[in-house]
Each structure stands twice: as C-alpha cells, then as structure tokens.
Design a binder for these strands. Sequence first.
DNA 1: TTGTAAGCGTTATCAG
DNA 2: CTGATAACGCTTACAA
Lengths: 341, 341
Amino acid sequence: MVTIKDVARAAGVSVATVSRVYNSSAPVRQDTRDRVRAVAEQLGYSPHGAARSLITSRTHTLGVLLPDLYGEFFSEVIRGVDGAAQRAGYHLLVSSLRGESHGLEAALRSMRGRVDGLIVMSPDLDAGAAGRSLPSGFPVVLLNGPPSDAAYASLVVANAEGAQAMVAHLAGLGHRRIALVGGAARNYDAEERRRGYRQGLGEAGLPWRPDYEVAGDFSEESGHAAALRLLSLPEPPTAIFAANDCMAIGALSACRDHGRKVPDDVAVAGFDDIPMARYVDPALTSVHVDISALGARATERLLDALRAPANRDLRRETLATTLVVRRSCGALTPTPMREIP
Amino acid sequence: MVTIKDVARAAGVSVATVSRVYNSSAPVRQDTRDRVRAVAEQLGYSPHGAARSLITSRTHTLGVLLPDLYGEFFSEVIRGVDGAAQRAGYHLLVSSLRGESHGLEAALRSMRGRVDGLIVMSPDLDAGAAGRSLPSGFPVVLLNGPPSDAAYASLVVANAEGAQAMVAHLAGLGHRRIALVGGAARNYDAEERRRGYRQGLGEAGLPWRPDYEVAGDFSEESGHAAALRLLSLPEPPTAIFAANDCMAIGALSACRDHGRKVPDDVAVAGFDDIPMARYVDPALTSVHVDISALGARATERLLDALRAPANRDLRRETLATTLVVRRSCGALTPTPMREIP
DNA sequence: TTGTAAGCGTTATCAG
DNA sequence: CTGATAACGCTTACAA
C-alpha cells in the first residue's frame, strides 16, 4: 500500500506538502503541485480514509439505518439518499435492522467513529428507545418515525392527509362501503394511514365499521388474504383501500380470484404509488409519495446539520402527497393519468 | 467523545488492558475485566472504528458498487449482501455509479482504506477498465459482469440457459412466432439473454427474424413501447419474451392497450421473477433468479477471500435459474404455480 | 496478568 | 511557500 510518505519521498517534498496538494489547505507552488500529482498518479496513491478521519474527526460517511431492505420502497429511499450524499462527496454506510429489538442500539454503537451523522428510519412505534442509544448532540434525521422523539430532526410523509384524501375521493365517487386493509402492526405509517382513513369516513358522513378494517402487513400476500376476507363478508365493501400498493396489488388479484371485476364490482386503491402501480391491470389509483425525494431531503437536512452544528434545526417536516387517480377506482369519467411533476 | 484513555483512567488501568478487554487478545483477570466493562458502559464508550482500522488495517466493511439503485432487483441484491455481511459482523459501504463512465474508478479510489473488499456489479460491457482501477490483489467479487476480467472471482446468473429454457417452453406450447424484447444496450445480462433466446430458437427449429428482436432498456416503459411495435407488425408474434419482468409488465399493459388478450391472443413471459410477477394479471411466467441469494453468495465468497487471502478462489460461479410457469404464457394445462424453495 | 511505548497514515501547528 | 513534528485513538510487541 502506497502512503503519503512514499509520494513525498518520490516527489522530493515533505508529507505536509503532499497533504496540502490533496486538501488545498494552503498554497503550493504550481510546479511542486504538478510534480506531486504526477508522482502520486504514477504510484497509484490515494489518501487513506481511516487515517484521514482519525485526525479530522470527519468520516465523510453517513449512516443509514433501515428497518428492512425489502421492496421498491427502500430501494427508492436509498436511491434518494445516495444521490444527495454523492453530490456532497459523502459515502453511505447502510444497515438494516431485521426486526431485532435491540438491533438499533447495537447498530448505532458499531457505527461510532465511522459516520458523521445518521438517517434512521424507525417506523416501529415501540422504538422510542432509539434516542437513548445515541450520543446526545449527534446529528440524526429521523424518517417516518412517531413524533415522540422531539429531540431529533425528523421527516414524515403526510400519511393521514393522503389517506383522508383517498377516502374523500372514493366517497365522492359514490362509495358508501369503503374498507381498509391496514398496514403492519405497531407501524407508525400504518397507524397514521388508518387515522386518515377513519377521519375521511367521518368527514364523508360514513359510519366506521370494525368488519371493514382488516389487518395486513404491507406484503402482497397479506393484501390478498385481507381482500378475500372482505369480499366474503355478508355485506362486502364496494371499495377497498389498502395501506400500501403491494397490498393493493394483492387485493387486485384477490378480486380476480373471487370473480369480482375491478373497478366495476369493486374499487381498489393503494398508497405510495410505486412505479409498478401504473402497470398493473387495472392501473392502480394511489397516493403518490415521492420516496426518493424523501430520502434526498433527509440527507440534505443531515448535511446542513453537519455544516452548521450550531443552529440545529430540529423541526418535524412533512412531505406532502398527491392523489393519483387511475382506473382501479372506477372514477366515473375515465380520468387521464395525473402528471407527477 | 470518550476515548480508551478516559476509560483506562476511570478504571485505574492502562489503555492496553482496556484494549485487551475489548479484543480478548490476551488474558485479563475477571475482576479487572468486569471493572473495565462497567466503567466503559457507564461512560458510554465504544471503540473508534477509524482508529482501530488504521492500526489493524481491517475496516470490517465491505464496499458494494452497483450500476444504479433502481427497482426491486437492486433492493434484493443489497438485501442478500447485507444479511450475509451482518452475520459476519461486517458493515456495508454502498454506492451507485449512475452511469458515469469513469465513475467506477473514482468510486474505487474514494473507498480506499475504507473497505476490506468489494462487491462490484458492472454489467456494462465496456467496463473492462474496472480491473485496472483496483490495486491488484485486492479482494473483489464481480457480479453479473462479462467474463473478460478473468483475474477476479465472479458470479453470474445463468442468463443464456434461462432464456433458452423459456424459448423451449414457449415453443413446446406450440408457438412458432416468438419475439424478444431485449434489455439495455451494452449490458451483459441483456446480451446473454439474447444469446439464449437465439439459441432456443435454433434448437426448436424456428427461424430467427430481425423484426422479432426489438430493443428495450429494462424499464416498464420501454417494454410497453417495444410490445406495441411488435403487435403492430404485419405478422405479429404469438409470444413475447421480455428480457426482464419490468418490461414484461410493460408488455402486458401494451397488449391491453392494443386489445389483445393475454394469454389467449398472445403469450407474454419475463425474466427475474420479481415478487410482483405473481400478482400482475395474468400472473407472469418468468425465469426465476434468486437475487438475494446471488448477493449473499457473493458476500460469502468475498468473506472467504478475506479470511484466507492465500488460496484465493477466482472461479466464475454460475447461479442456476428456474422456469416458473404462470398464466401469462397460456400453458395448455393450467399449471399450478411452481414452488420456489 | 498488567503496563509502557512504538507505531498505523493523515492533518494541523508552528517555524522557517 | 515549505518542512518538522505533534497529535488523532487504537493495537501490539516487549518488559515487568
């Protein structure tokens, strides 16, 4: 491994000069600079990150902690985070929690001294403990977490508002029996979407019925099962609103299995508007969430915090959603697909 | 930030002892050990990764370089890699290349001293340069790359075999006019799948027709466009085989738009068998690739290489695929979905 | 079983 | 503009 010393020796300068060339931390004469560059290039030198961060106490790395790495949703989050991080010259240390309860704490500890800040997505309601494992004052942005941890900058999707808008839309189409396929238990997004659903019912003057609220876990399979249960009710719903698109797609296939035409016999809607949504049959009405923008925005806030640790901005920011009407909800006028900017 | 010195002082021992407690590198008396642990715990100490790896020259981190972070495919790869890495106590430094041609080289350089080994996915055919940017002897596993770089351990999906099997299946169902929606240009997977397609035609005694091979780029949109073009031919194909599932799903929607029933009027098949495949309508016949297993296997090989740098195994390993028959190909007997173990 | 001290590859400080 | 040299936090001989 070629070090700064080798370069210095070969270029006939001191290590300090080589360092200065690489950091432009002080003026270096043009010809020395060129010579150093040339020698370094030829030797195949590049600075050793760990050594660098030992002295600067900056790693130029952001930690990303996700509950799981499954499906398009997380792929999109990482995509957004990666883009923003890369633009700022930062690396990404990614780790998933895989449901271990104390995993968060362990993950946090093992990342000490390896990251300058953290993006933590912990939609788990009981994960209030998150905060305690962190050195206080360590730059963190919380993604889609419950609001309890007021001590951290956080970013959430307008879950309740989106769900409410969807119910309003369905009610506006004349549906009186609107069911919900709920998300994973003890999941904040799921709870918020449920809250929005109920609120939407209320505003539309529709009664809340316990048999119209069945549990899912965000997977296609659970959506399928839940929809089958709903369709088998003595008085089945005329609209099924799933708390995410995967479940909605599962619901679509359940309708087929059950011999119900969508949207003629029953309307189906989802949440998230994953890319696939417009390609299923019928194209899925959904609540659009710009997931990669969520990741990018989280990253930007984290980077801001790193640049100016003094005036830390701990606000809770909400990312708006948009209703995207497609065929699956049977909008009376065959609405053209709404453009997402 | 609390360092090893603070712990040593507070526990009334030397830093060496604290270090030994954390590394079990030498015997420490039980009571000293307990005292150190207690003090460390109370002070909230955890070893500084960068400092550690500076002296040990091991980062306990693996670099993952992906061409892009889009869609379920990459999400699954990372998932597999993360699982295997986490089991072995390794971190993941993830980065995408975003199509910058010299991005690979830059990414590699910037990771120097931050990772112990690399998993590089560079399906780009012209990326033979990959190797040259790496310090020779650095542990690397290549994923889905062209075979030119014989100097590295590599892992590939049995693309050609899978495609060939699909064509054989379609021909077996009586199809004589089988078209291909190809993958991205200059992409190794895409080329291999095309090769398998042509080979399959040959073995089935079917002629290769230039108008039956249209280009795509692995996106739903391109699959949609390509299928429309195929269906508008004077003599349209009776089966459309897309080089991945996203494009196949695009093709399904194109068939609907064109008023063709799948599978009655035209058969459609994909490649990858992403989770979504079984939930589209009709359920998509595809070539199953265990993507997360691919990632996990790559990681295991890399870890092996790290543990025993001496006997390095540079073989090229091929991951088998399985044909998954679902409704979209119109298999004459409505075959039940084949179980994936 | 424990302590002392020499690095690991950088950057930062201070002279020149 | 450039060069010595002291950190940074840790591990690891070598001594005790």
